[in-house]
């Protein structure tokens, strides 16, 4: 049996800390950032019945972080009576996107084809983004369920981005950049994003230059959004664990540096 090393104690400490905090069930009072507020305001201020496109541009591995973000945005959009057209430009995001949309639509008693539709996956994301700017029908002749796009009532009258209120890219990588470069720059469609925290600094310059209208970043962004909509979810539940785990990391960094300085001093002596 291998003996427990110091790193194992660090992991055990982190697990116990997160488990204890989750069992407590306490929620932090999170103030929404301006980036998250922009997303809320954008969806809130769209005329009821507007059509939004939501693109699931992420892998399955980022689901724990992406899910609360996507659910918070979907719930807000559906609750405002907006129509949603879903798609995926990442193969792994295809079924995840469909299940998330279907789940939230069921919560609100919405009907597939009338209130929302899911177009499925299209390879070659740049070609897909450009192609939808010309014709969504030609890019996706069938939806995810194999129905002809002409048979979906929601898609009647929606030909390209001109009939779309905005595109929300749910991403864990740089794919949203392509939405801005090819969708926004060429077809002038508004781009909004819900991304993992690791990607926030990548998209901040685009937000600052108004190439992106709003950005919801990571678990914190999800918690902020849930606060705005007043509906508790995975973001709110995870924020205390997030904060305490960060304090734990900070404590370890501090202890590590103290130990390092002490050992260096001993070495000098």
């Amino acid at each position: 049996m291998k003996r427990i090393e110091s790193r194992h104690w660090i992991f055990i400490g982190l697990f116990l800390l997160i488990a204890a905090v989750m069992l407590l069930g306490v929620e932090l009072n999170i103030n929404p950032s301006s980036e998250t507020q922009k997303m809320y305001d954008y969806i809130e201020n769209l005329p009821p019945g507007s059509t939004l496109m939501i693109s699931f541009d992420h892998e399955a591995s980022s689901l724990p972080e992406i899910r609360p973000v996507a659910l918070a945005i979907l719930r807000h959009a559906f609750s405002k009576g907006h129509k949603l057209v879903g798609l995926a430009l990442f193969a792994e995001g295809t079924v995840i996107g469909y299940r998330l949309m279907d789940r939230v639509a069921t919560e609100y008693g919405l009907e597939y084809g009338r209130d929302y539709a899911y177009l499925g996956f299209k390879p070659q994301y740049i070609a897909a983004i450009l192609s939808m700017g010309e014709s969504i029908q030609e890019t996706f002749p069938e939806d995810y369920l194999g129905r002809s796009i002409d048979e979906i009532p929601l898609m009647n009258g929606i030909y390209n981005y001109d009939q779309i209120g905005g595109v929300i890219s749910i991403a864990d990588g740089s794919l949203t950049t392509h939405w801005m470069e090819y969708g926004a720059a060429r077809y002038n469609v508004d781009i909004l994003a819900g991304v993992t925290a690791a990607m926030v600094t990548t998209y901040d310059p685009y937000l600052a230059s108004n190439q992106m209208q709003a950005l919801v970043g990571g678990l914190r962004g999800a918690a902020e959004y849930e606060r705005l909509t007043g509906r508790r979810g995975g973001g709110s539940r995870g924020m205390l664990a997030q904060t305490t785990s960060h304090l734990y990391v900070l404590l370890l960094i501090l202890l590590g540096n103290i130990a390092f300085i002490r050992s260096r001093r001993k070495g000098n002596n």
């Binding site: 972080e65 990571g218 664990a241």
Partner: peptide, 26 residues
Amino acid sequence: YTVMSRMSTLIGRMEFLLSDFLHLVD
């Protein structure tokens, strides 16, 4: 932000284990 992202992933899985799998939290 990357540390925050990785922690979020861990928290997400922990939440799944504690709620859906073990039913220890709501």
